[in-house]
Design a protein around this nucleic acid. Structure first.
Length: 850
RNA sequence: GCGGGCGUGGCGGAAUGGUAGACGCACCGGACUUAAAAUCCGUAGGGGCGCGAGCCCCGUGCCGGUUCAAGUCCGGCCGCCCGCACCA
């Protein structure tokens, strides 16, 4: 029999599925649905192994659920706006649209070569005007509902590229492209009011029980809820100052009040204080990088103002400006209680401010704060009317008194900030707003949507090419008709990915979404992607879904019922010594060969240093191109590799020997199927069997039960192991023929179907079927056949295994006990002593205690 | 610093508190072959005893505990990984 020709078979079945429209999904609301979605890719031009792993997992789920009878939606699209296209335009003079769509074409054909069960009829790219038109409409709807607003904010400004940068694009205080020191600028920008849902986004995390705990925790920390008291100090300049504290119980331990360098009051004072101006400048020079924050020294500046203690107008506290007080949290001002807060302690120690303890640990009479602050629970002392109260009671007492005086208010504070969505970028969704000299900011008319990006942008200009375009920004005011200017900012590309899953429900809808379709398909039943999106994308999508609910476009709040975050694909790194500053440079896996335990550059004696396995990345050159591997081993082998061995949530190592092993298994299944002779016709019933035939039947039915369970739980590595076990059983029971052999072969082929769809289709055909495997229902098992009639029971004496018994399943306890005690090994281990106790765990184990 | 996760053969990993190492990769031995490839069969955690069938001891990062029984549960360490981080 000829070897399995993966390339031929894969092309053939892909054409077959295509021409039959097998994976085109109808919005048939009468059927139970299953929406399977993997995070859509950025069209960089080539798929990488991470894509292969991600899309293979999703595909297995989609095909599995489809076989189980669900109406499965499994679409694909492109997260197509973004910087790389602009960089290509700037560096290579290519139109970003041309560049992006060429990449999409290339990647689409690569994804198709994987044999994914995708409804390509629903494909769209976020840079299609037919997509972003609807995004502009949603933006306007959100604006009407006050979910979008314009606000002046400090932003990271790159003075060389003349654009705002996202926080992630600022590395060690410098622009990631230009390398220029980033400046802080105040600019009017568009924001999404995500903080309207702070509480709900936090609370609803508890309902997302099919999300990884880790992701929920990360979001929880990101939202950062804390309860405290907001209250004001009267200042010596006759103004008052709001502070926020979670520890108002320590108010009598206060020794200073501190302002952020960015606080409005600081700025006001700086107008007439040159030294303060210098101090602010120095604070701003300190970067925001992790290492710098860790080592950053506390810096303070005494403004000369004083603040009166809220409970004692004669008690004056110095008002400082401190570099560790953040304008972005709370009110941008604090009171410092050095005895019970680490930062305040550091600060007070440095500037010789009083450190007065006011909390003593429960049951103790004093507290030592000479070396470090005490931040634990306890009782209040040194605090007048609070003395003797525990921390919680004291918090309440302070809050009640200040609330009564109208000086304070219990508040819940969140770390979550509103989402700054403006970008001074040309390759993004234009913000549909117009600036009119008389009417101010006016929304574009809906009839004017989409506000289209012009095709003739000049990327050689500094700053935003959209702003530099000769005509784009010139328009008329939708309100008064006078000449006006368009907003030339575009939306953060995270906006594009915040609702694409809803558009897939009906990508042809004339509205942003087709409500009926969205109500049928959402939430996504299984979402799969990388952990790197744990916060931003997933939080934004959760916000957007709520905002769409509020504006009438959706009925659900949570877009993703079940989330799975898959691990990364890693590979060894290879490097060769050279005279560079680093002393070596990386080389591609293709460029090396291994001889024995050493590695060399191919065909040379130049030694190669084999480094640790790390996430595949271009910079480390430890990348293996999926298409090359598919060429050699076929898509099914590569899919199988991605599912084998490593649990899907963990990182996995690419290895060529592993891929070869998968290829051998593909051939093995093909051989098992094609070498079977004289099989009865498809559909032949299996009669009563015993012996080896029964064993084979049991192996098949056990495999059905196990694989079904494993796939449902996304335990692909275990499903893979089950199929190896079944293959071994088929091979070991070579003498079994007839209907039982057919049943076993059909079982392995059907179970392998979601994972190796092309091979399975070819095998199904070879087994004499005239219908497609992809249209065949998932097999069911006979429960009685998933259990053997005998069971091996271990016998322990005092917890150590001394014997094995083979007995009938569910043998009576007395019989098990008798057999155990009669066993030679057990008798020997007992050394003539009488058992004190015999524990019999049915069908599992016996433990004899002496 | 705070939060979370993980630690099992040469490697990836399996194991509702119940025979630790399923399954795969690599390695080794054998068969087939003129030879190779492919394929098939077999051994394999460490140590010891026995001619042998087999038997014994040790073993899931370390120390202790609970239990008839612990990779699994509890307490305390050690190590690695990830996330957040001057959040008042």
């Amino acid at each position: 029999m000829a070897r399995y020709n993966a390339k031929e078979s894969e092309q053939r079945w892909q054409r077959e599925w295509d021409s039959r429209l097998t994976f085109v999904t109808a919005n048939d609301t009468s059927r139970p649905k299953c929406y399977v979605l993997e995070m859509f890719p950025y069209p960089s031009g080539r798929i990488h192994m991470g894509h292969v792993r991600n899309y293979t997992m999703g595909d297995v789920i989609a095909r599995f659920r489809r076989a189980q009878g669900f109406n499965v939606l499994h679409p694909m699209g492109w997260d197509a706006f973004g910087l790389p296209a602009e960089n290509a335009a700037r560096d290579g003079g290519i139109n970003p649209r041309t560049w992006t769509y060429a990449n999409i074409d290339a990647m689409r054909s690569e994804l198709k070569a994987l044999g994914l069960a995708i409804d390509w009829s629903r494909e769209f790219a976020t840079c299609d005007p037919s997509y972003y038109a609807h995004q502009q409409k949603l933006f306007l709807d959100f604006y009407k509902d006050d979910l979008v607003y314009r606000h002046e904010a400090d932003v990271n400004w790159d003075p060389v590229d003349m654009t705002v940068l996202a926080n992630e694009q600022v590395i060690d205080g410098k622009g990631w492209r230009s390398g220029a020191a980033v400046e802080r600028r105040k600019l009017s920008q568009w924001f999404f009011r995500i903080t309207r849902y702070s509480e709900d986004l936090l609370n609803a995390l508890d309902t997302l029980d099919k999300w990884p705990e880790k992701v929920r925790l990360m979001q929880k920390n990101w939202i950062g809820r804390s309860e405290g008291l907001r209250f004001s100090f009267d200042l010596s300049n006759l103004t008052s100052l709001d502070v926020f504290s979670t520890r108002p119980d320590t108010l009598f331990g206060a020794s200073f009040v501190a302002l952020s360098p960015d606080h409005p009051l600081t700025e006001e004072l700086a107008k007439t204080d040159e030294t303060l101006r210098d101090f602010i400048a120095e604070c701003r020079r300190t970067g925001t990088a992790e290492a710098e924050i860790e080592t950053a020294e506390k810096l303070g500046y005494d403004t000369g103002l004083t603040a009166a203690h809220p409970f004692d107008p004669n008690w004056k506290l110095p008002v400082m400006v401190a570099n560790f007080v953040l304008m972005g949290y709370g009110t941008g001002a604090i009171f410092g209680c050095p005895a019970h807060d680490q930062r305040d302690w550091d600060f007070a120690t440095k500037y010789k401010l009083p450190i007065l303890p006011v909390v003593v640990p429960e049951g103790e009479t004093s507290v030592d704060i000479s070396k470090e602050p005490y931040v634990g629970p306890g009782r209040i002392f040194n605090s007048r009317f609070l003395d003797g109260m525990d921390v919680g009671t004291a918090k309440n007492e302070v809050a009640s008194r200040l609330e009564k005086d109208g000086k304070g208010q219990r508040t819940v504070n969140y770390r979550l900030r509103d989402w700054l969505a403006s970008r001074q970028r040309a390759w993004g969704c234009p913000i549909p707003m117009v600036h009119c000299a008389t009417c101010g900011v006016v929304p574009a008319k809906e009839s004017d949507l989409p506000i289209k990006l012009p095709d003739d942008l000049d990327f050689s200009v500094k700053g935003n090419p959209l702003d530099a375009h000769p005509t784009f920004k010139h328009t008329t005011c939708p309100k008064c008709g006078a000449k006006a200017l368009r907003d030339t900012d575009t939306l953060d590309t995270f906006v594009d990915s915040s609702w694409y899953f809803a558009r897939f429900a009906d990508p042809f809808s004339a509205d942003p979404v087709n409500r009926d379709a969205v109500n049928y398909w959402l939430p996504v039943d299984q979402y799969i992607g990388g952990i790197e999106h744990a916060i931003l994308h997933l939080l934004y999508a959760r916000f957007f879904t709520r905002a769409m609910h509020a504006t009438g476009w959706a009925r659900v709040d949570e877009p993703f019922a079940s989330l799975f975050t898959q691990g990364m694909v890693c590979h060894e790194t290879y490097s060769v010594a050279d005279n560079s500053a680093q002393g070596s440079h990386f080389v591609l896996p293709d460029e090396i060969e291994k001889r024995g335990d050493s590695a060399y550059l191919k065909g040379t004696e130049t030694p190669v240093i084999v480094g640790a396995s790390e996430k595949m990345s271009k910079s480390k050159k430890n990348v293996v191109a999926p298409m090359g591997m598919i060429d050699v081993y076929g898509a099914d082998s590569i899919r199988w590799f991605m599912l084998s061995d490593s649990p899907p949530e963990r990182d996995t190592d690419w290895s060529e020997t592993g891929a070869e092993g998968c290829w051998r298994f593909v051939q093995r299944i093909w051989r098992l199927v094609t070498e079977a002779e004289d099989l009865p016709a498809p559909g032949t019933k299996v009669g009563e069997v015993s012996g080896a035939a029964l064993e084979l039947r049991q192996a098949a039915h056990k495999a059905i039960a196990a694989v079904t369970e494993d796939l449902a739980a996304l335990r692909f590595n275990r499903a893979v192991a089950q199929l190896y076990t079944l293959a071994n059983a088929i091979q070991q029971n070579a003498s079994v023929d007839g209907a039982v052999r057919r049943e076993a072969l059909e079982t392995i082929v059907l179970l392998a179907g979601p994972m190796m769809p092309h091979l399975a289709e070819s095998c199904w055909e070879a087994l004499g079927h005239t219908t497609l495997l992809v249209d065949t229902p998932w097999p069911s098992f006979i429960a009685a056949l998933t259990k053997s009639e005998t069971v091996t029971i271990a016998v322990q004496v005092n917890g150590k295994r001394r014997a094995e018994l083979t007995l009938a399943v569910n043998a009576p306890e007395a019989q098990v006990r008798a057999a155990a005690l009669a066993d030679d090994g057990v008798v020997r281990a007992l050394e003539g002593k009488a058992p004190k106790k015999v524990i019999v765990v049915p069908n599992r184990i016996v433990n004899v205690v002496v």
